[in-house]
């Protein structure tokens, strides 16, 4: 090999990368030139490759579109999820608000009833709210949020618009304890509304109130309503006590066993009215009469 040839080989070997770069650039330039001048939009090789790549392009586009759709759907789903979450929170808030309003309406109804009965009864009265029920099954009592300071004293009758509840057994400054009719120590003089037969409604250890001292020959039957007789000096006459639900002939001695369903369920009552034995003080003006019950009726 000649010296020039050897030199050429060495140079070619030494600069083979740049040389190939220049060749590739030339080829690329050729492709660009041909493709830009060709009326068919490309030189034959590119056209052929482009044609043969069509299925691949389509599949790549499909994959890309699927990914794009997935992303779009994910975003939409995320938006929906967020919206759903926000709506759920809104529903919960509205539900709480509705419940609060419903409770307010119920309380309003109860207090209105209490006010009505208070104006009807011609005795001094105090409204109060039940704060606790007796935790013992032997003593059936409730505690209310008003006591001696509000004018409550021992022996006062306790009622609700539905009927008789019980009697005050102890009084503190700001609370009072009421023995319910269901307590086995309680006793209330009653008469049947239909036949005016007398008896004593009392609780029992098993929690079922009964009418004591009801003779075997008395005209009573299940469904008869029991009202206060007014003879005990505590309860006004005519307040509903309950209804006879069962009469058994196996009672002790001369009397029958009469089971009673009380008008007031002590477990669900919330506001009660205390009635004093003393009559209402005489009111001098209409304004005072209108204002005074509303103030004291608020529990």
């Amino acid at each position: 090999m000649s010296k020039a040839g050897f030199l050429a080989v060495v140079l070619l070997r030494r600069y083979r990368v740049p040389i190939h770069c220049v060749l590739a650039l030339a080829l690329a330039f050729y492709v660009v030139t041909v493709s830009s001048t060709s009326p068919n939009g490309g030189e034959p090789v590119t056209r052929l490759l482009s044609q043969s790549m069509k299925p691949l392009k389509k599949s790549l586009h499909a994959v890309g579109a699927a990914i794009h759709n997935l992303q779009v759907n994910y975003v939409a789903f995320k938006d929906l999820w967020n919206e759903n979450h926000a709506l759920k929170e809104q529903i919960a808030a509205l539900e709480a608000e509705r419940n609060r309003l419903f409770e307010a309406k119920l309380a309003n109804d109860r207090l209105t009833e209490l006010l009505e009965i208070r104006t009807r009864i011609l005795r001094q009265s105090v409204a109060a709210t039940v704060i606790t029920h007796s935790p013992s099954s032997w003593f059936r009592t409730i505690t209310v949020d008003k006591g001696g300071r509000a004018g409550i004293h021992q022996g006062m009758a306790v009622i609700t618009p539905r009927g008789v509840v019980g009697k005050v057994v102890s009084v503190e400054e700001d609370t009072a304890k009421v023995m319910l009719l269901t307590d086995h120590k309680s006793g209330l003089d009653i008469i049947t509304q239909r036949t005016r037969v007398r008896g004593i409604v009392s609780g029992s250890v098993d929690g079922e109130p009964v009418v004591k001292y009801m003779g075997r020959n008395e005209d009573v039957r299940p469904g008869d309503r029991l009202i206060t007789s007014g003879l005990d000096g505590t309860f006004p006459k005519g307040l509903l006590v309950g209804t006879i639900v069962e009469i058994a002939e196996d009672g002790p001695g001369l009397f029958r066993r009469v089971r009673v369903s009380l008008a007031v369920d002590p477990l669900v009552m919330e506001e009660v009215l205390f009635i004093s034995a003393e009559p209402k003080p005489a009111v001098s003006s209409t304004a005072t009469r209108d204002r005074e019950p509303a103030q004291s009726a608020t529990p």
């Binding site: 990368v17 590119t46 691949l56």
Partner: peptide, 25 residues
């Protein structure tokens, strides 16, 4: 590597370029 680079550019041209050869170049 030179020719692979050229081919990769050319592949981009075939797949996405409106004018073949520019990416290869």
């Amino acid at each position: 590597a030179v020719w692979a680079t050229f081919l990769l550019g050319y592949a981009i041209d075939i797949l996405s370029s409106p004018q073949p050869g520019v990416n290869a170049l």
